[in-house]
Nucleic acid binder design. Sequence first.
DNA 1: CTGTTAGCGCTTTCAA
DNA 2: TTGAAAGCGCTAACAG
Lengths: 335, 335
Amino acid sequence: MTIKDIARLSGYAVGTVSRVLNDHPNVSETARTKILAVAKEHHFVRNTNAQQLKQQGRYIAILVKGVSNILLNSILEIIQKHIGETIYTSSVFVLDEYDNEAKTALKIYYEKRPAGIIFLGGNPQRYESDFNKIKVPCVLITNQAPNVSNNNLSSVGTDDVKAAEQITDYLIENGHTKLGVIGGDINNSEISERRFNGFLNSVKKHGLEFDFDMQYQTTKYSFEDGASAVKQLISKCDGITAIFTMGDVQAIGAIRMLNDMGISVPKDISITGFDGLLLTQYIYPRLTTIRQSESQLAKCGLAALLEAISKEDEESVHLLIPYEFIEGESVLKIN
Amino acid sequence: MTIKDIARLSGYAVGTVSRVLNDHPNVSETARTKILAVAKEHHFVRNTNAQQLKQQGRYIAILVKGVSNILLNSILEIIQKHIGETIYTSSVFVLDEYDNEAKTALKIYYEKRPAGIIFLGGNPQRYESDFNKIKVPCVLITNQAPNVSNNNLSSVGTDDVKAAEQITDYLIENGHTKLGVIGGDINNSEISERRFNGFLNSVKKHGLEFDFDMQYQTTKYSFEDGASAVKQLISKCDGITAIFTMGDVQAIGAIRMLNDMGISVPKDISITGFDGLLLTQYIYPRLTTIRQSESQLAKCGLAALLEAISKEDEESVHLLIPYEFIEGESVLKIN
DNA sequence: CTGTTAGCGCTTTCAA
DNA sequence: TTGAAAGCGCTAACAG
């Protein structure tokens, strides 16, 4: 089924069919009705390759970084649903945690000539030279692009600093004074850096000490790495009563490892997560964590991109989406 | 930059350029070197829209049945990654657990004219009349298409019967005689049916009784449904000491609920899972479960489809991928 | 071995 | 309001 077939079947010419399909003006109601009926009857769907070959620029590329990241998966679903309701088409590219998203994006940019690019997780800015060659609007979701010079780049994320500060406040207000942190590489991950800054804000505010070398353990975002990190952390630093982790999965891994070492959570050590995965409310103990709003991140992110595409030379936007503090059972009150 | 530009710049014609780019024979080494050099110098990248417009029928549709199914998600990722390395493109259609996959597939078949269709979960054979209209190779992944007449249809799955039997044997050999089952609808899900048959094999082999109405609880594949199912199960049937669940997520939901009711796993009730999600080895207690090989399922499934696409009139294949029995801590030895 | 050329299915002028 | 026709960039068949 091509528009040629529809044209033949409906008695109109391909031009008219195309106009109807694209909701263009100057088509009679008769033609519109007839053509739409024929198209529907024959399950006609446009060949997007041909369409995009012709009108380059109604296509959005989505890059997802982080295999099997539950949070991103669920945001992705929402985004795709919304894109379906616009004039744009999209496709998804999955990247490994160690792939270079800027390089991949650049390749896609050349090959597909998208109107815009959505980055789910990851931060292409780290590879500036590649990234700056991309001349279409981009949006970072769950990540932030704060003091960025690149005017193509918007971002929609959670206020990591505030959230981290709040959850740390909670730990301290429950009587914990010697805290450990399991987090990302603060020199290479801006999310980790921000969460750490929030943590530090709280620590300082309460007049506590924090020795980075002793009390911080750098790790990747996985169950396994959370587990090994907590082992290293408690072996190098005595007397920690609570651990702030930068992701639910690390928290779960850490709890598992502590259990295996005969250390109970939260009786002996308290732990907090970050992200608010559904799962965290089914494990034992229920995790105290920060829930990021998947639907809001998705909706606002896409909206920002479409805005940027339609209005060229616009200032890029940087939004923070409200989060939710979830009080679980993984923190013990010790005062 | 188009191949036309490259042709002009290199002094050859577009045909030759195309041949070089596609590694076709009948090109002189001189031409190849020259053209490649020019292409590289100008950062030329093929326009995939044009390429695929030309090469129709290089599209694979993937139908995923069961929203937010972690196992399928993870298989999906692997498949997409592999497809990216082939000449094919793909897109994904997500179906609800109760949608009719044959109907959807047929619609996609008409609309998109894919070269092949992958079914992740679900079984379109149940709707034969619709499914038989599909005239391109299909492959079922995680499911089986045993005595099937349809020669388009291959399958790559786990030996559910044997796996279920083995894990049930384990329960019984640990002294459990009154077993509960939390599983899918055995009248509508062949996977559930097979797992139940494996379970029954073991039960009969050991001379135990099983009252379906009392001891079986039908449920969907989610944390939440696992939680509510276990509640119903233990309220309608006294004295169950072990529960065979047909999915890890139900098992996790069930454990959570039992905990909330003051029932400890495995001290009071033992539980087994099915699927072998990574997660199951990080929760408390570690789940005793069956690990399906995601990567093997993905790789073999895609390979089977591509094979079937390239060689028409080939006999379809039906593979069983080895599984692994994982002994966790969720089963108590009571004899 | 290389060049020429006919489309792939679609959008979008330009005429009618 | 509609039809005819010119490509978008590429591949592959055909002719040389």
